[in-house]
Design a protein around this nucleic acid. Structure first.
Length: 139
DNA sequence: GCCAACGTTGGC
DNA sequence: GCCAACGTTGGC
């Protein structure tokens, strides 16, 4: 199973909103970036990802899971844009901040650090385990 | 709130 | 197909 990272501004759509959707999950719509879209197209059912709060928060707050494969984004008629649905799995016991990630040499190659603009990105298995460990949460 | 970095658009 | 102009993201 591949691992991913989803970014959202908590003022717009935060972890609590995601949890409120329960197991039904919610469409990860509104992405208008080809790389991010391609990442979503590559996702499989059951793939898990980190939920990251951007701009305000700057930390990973929980784990989500892909609960619907890539499909047309209902927030637009433009057929270029697809997205998956995700549901909350569990929150981190302790959140992992961007600062922690940036200062950990093992995480220096993360896309989160290298390309802060990409809103849906892949995470390596190693990075996944390190961050779950930092968050005192089982992978 | 600012602005650097990045992605996209559109004129040529 | 290039690249200047523009818009958006996201850390600070």
């Amino acid at each position: 199973m591949a691992k991913w990272l989803f970014k959202s501004e908590p003022d717009v759509w935060g972890w609590n909103a995601q949890v409120a959707k329960g197991d039904a999950g919610e469409e990860w719509g509104g992405v208008r970036n080809y790389q991010a879209r391609n990442n979503m197209r590559a996702m499989a059912l059951g793939d898990q990802g980190f939920f990251y709060h951007s701009r305000t928060g700057l930390e990973i707050v929980g784990i989500v899971e892909v609960c619907a494969l890539s499909h047309p984004d209902s927030t637009t008629d433009d057929e270029r844009w697809d997205c998956v649905d995700i549901k909350a799995v569990r929150p981190f016991k302790t959140t992992v901040t961007l600062e922690q990630i940036k200062t950990d040499p093992r995480l220096a190659d993360m896309i989160l650090v290298k390309n802060s603009r990409l809103s849906v990105q892949p995470v390596s298995d190693t990075e996944w385990e390190i961050i779950c460990d930092l968050g005192n949460t089982k992978p």
